[in-house]
Structures are given as C-alpha cells and as structure tokens.
Design a binder for these strands. Structure first.
Lengths: 172, 172
DNA sequence: AGGGTCATGTCATCAAGTGACATCACGTCC
DNA sequence: GGACGTGATGTCACTTGATGACATGACCCT
C-alpha cells in the first residue's frame, strides 16, 4: 500500500514491492496470485465473518433479516480503521484493474451469502436476489461511509441504506 | 469468440486472434484496449439504450419504475440472440479475468443509471441505491434466462425478478 | 504532382506471470 | 552429531500482454 499510495498502482512494479519487503519478485508471486491481490488479502476473512453471522441468526429470520445481520457483522469488522479504509479505497478508485478486482470480491461475497441462505432453506432465486441486494446495500453504504466528512458509524449507514432500499422498492 | 470457444480464453494468444482476422497483434490493440475487451464491444451500446429508455419515461414515474423501464429496454435488446448470449456467457463464466471485466461493465451500467436518475431530480443516495438494485435484478434475471432450458423471454423474467425483490425487502 | 490523413505493419521494449532447478535454514530421527 | 526431509527463498529462462516510435502504403483533395 505504501508504494501504491506513493506513486500509484500502475507506476509501481512488483520488483519494487518485493525489494521494499526485502524479497524477490518470484517470492511475491508465491504469496499473492498477482499484483492486485495484495490489496485484498483481508477479503477472505471478511467473507468468513459474514457467513458466520448469517449462520448464527435464528432460523425464524426472513432472508433479508439474515442478510442484514451479516451486514452488521461486516460493519463492525470494517467499522474500525476508517482511515485505513479511506486510503485503501482511494488507491482502488484510482485504477480500473483494482476496481475490477474489488468487484469480483464483492461478487464472491454475494455468492457466499446466497449459498448461506440456501443452506437455511431459502429458495434458489430468493437467495441470489437477497444476496445481490444485500451486497448492493453494502457497496452503497460503504462508499457513503468512506466519503462522509464525519464518522457516523458504518453499521448505522448500512441499516439506513437498507431501509432506503425497502422504501424505494415499495414505492414502485 | 470462435477461438475463445474453441480453446478457451487463456489458451488463445492475441497473435492467434489477429492472425485469424488477417491482422497483426499490434493492430488488434488499436481496436481493443486488451484481450478481454473484444468480448464487451456491445456494452457501450447497451448502456446507451438503457439511458435512452430511462430518459423517455415520464417524469412522474418513481425511481424504481424508471429503472424498470430501462431494464425492459435492455431485455428487448438482449432478448433476441439467446444462443449467442449463452455461448458468450459460457466463455465468460469459464475465466476469472473475463468475469471481472463483465462486473465492471455492469458497474458502469449502474453508474450511468444512477446519473440518469439524478438528472431526473432523484436524490443522490436514492439514485445509487435504485441503480444498484436494478443492476442486481438485471444480473440475476439474465443469469436465470441464460440458464433456463426454454426461452420464457428475458423481459418477463426481469419483471418477475423485480417483483421478487420487492417481496423480499417488504418481508424484512 | 504534391501533400495530408488514416490504417496498418515492423521493431524494440517493458512488465507480469510461470515453470524448473538450486540453495539454505530448520527440525527430526537414528 | 550427522544424515535426511521439508519448506521458504533465490536464480534463470521464457512466454505473453501491452505500448511507444517510426515506416509504409492506400486514398482523397486540391
């Protein structure tokens, strides 16, 4: 991240990253599949937490309620370290390849969420839709949280956005 | 697409593509920014149609109604050529880089949609949420349409999925 | 005939990945 | 303590994607 912030993602070579870490480029590629992946090391853990939260909601909860619980978990996980998130996000926003990578991580989250819902007996189509909608909320809320001047709390913004989506679809 | 279907995306080099087209690799890169882009040439046109449809809905329509109209336009555009869509989709599904590219095209659609909504006076946050939700529906419906054994019509499935989302959020 | 523009080709170069093999530090076992 | 296996790292060679610089040739306009 240091180098990506200093001179931008494209302008830094893997050799430079490796050098700063006291390693060889070859070794870098043994830890990260590619130059982008190094910024997304945490996403697997995030996914685990999301799923754990989903699984621990009572079986009586509706699909969207379960998704909301998962989003809460995500919020508490990311909610700390806003400064870090902002810097990271500004690096990602500045480069198309990184944005692509982020999107596929989100898609993976969505897929995991949908699978989790199916495991609770939610119908296939409901599961994918609820998961996609949940991730849409996540995305919008996260972006808002990172962009706002004062920290209102990611969880709050998530809940707010979810309510907003509810209102929007109801009004159609 | 021929080559991507024949031997897979990774296994075909740009040199081969260029050769089959009777060109040089250098020339290929003058038409397409990269090896992936060649599969997404149509997405700019799709975006235009979506926005055109959005703009031509009455100002009285709610955000989600306007989005629904845009989705209808997308459906009539893609609704023909299901066979083509299936082959293309199977190529994309088989490769992570292509999936990434598709996701960013979707994100671009979402951004354009949100911008269109804002132009109609919809509040910022409502606009992004409605757009994201719309794209989520698009994604799920398209996937379903491509995967189904018989062609029920993309537009029908889109409407159906939108209703489903409405029901899901209402039940939370 | 001359000049301008556009598409293409050629060449050189860089950086991202990847496979094959060597090396070195370590812990284990006899 | 020395032989041995294992895992992490380095070195080297190579392919491919991508880009810049320059040349060439077709076409059109005056």
């Amino acid at each position: 991240m240091e180098l990506y912030v200093e001179r931008g993602f494209e302008q830094t070579t893997v050799a430079e990253i490796a050098q700063r870490a006291g390693l060889t480029a070859r070794t870098f590629f043994r830890y990260f599949a590619d130059k982008r992946e190094v910024l997304f090391a945490g996403s697997a853990i995030l996914e685990e937490h999301l799923i754990a939260a989903l699984e621990s909601t009572p079986a009586s909860a509706s699909p969207m309620e379960a998704v909301a619980a998962a989003l809460d978990a995500a919020a508490t996980m990311l909610g700390q370290r806003r400064e870090f998130s902002r810097r990271r996000q500004s690096v990602i926003a500045a480069n198309a390849e990184l944005r692509e990578r982020e999107l596929i991580k989100m898609a993976s989250l969505s897929g995991a969420l949908a699978a989790g819902l199916r495991r609770r007996g939610v119908a296939d189509s409901d599961a994918s839709l609820a998961a996609e909608a949940g991730i849409a909320v996540f995305r919008v809320a996260f972006e808002r949280w990172v962009g706002e001047p004062t920290d209102r709390g990611l969880a709050t913004i998530m809940r707010e956005s979810l309510e907003q989506l509810k209102a929007l679809t109801a009004a159609s």
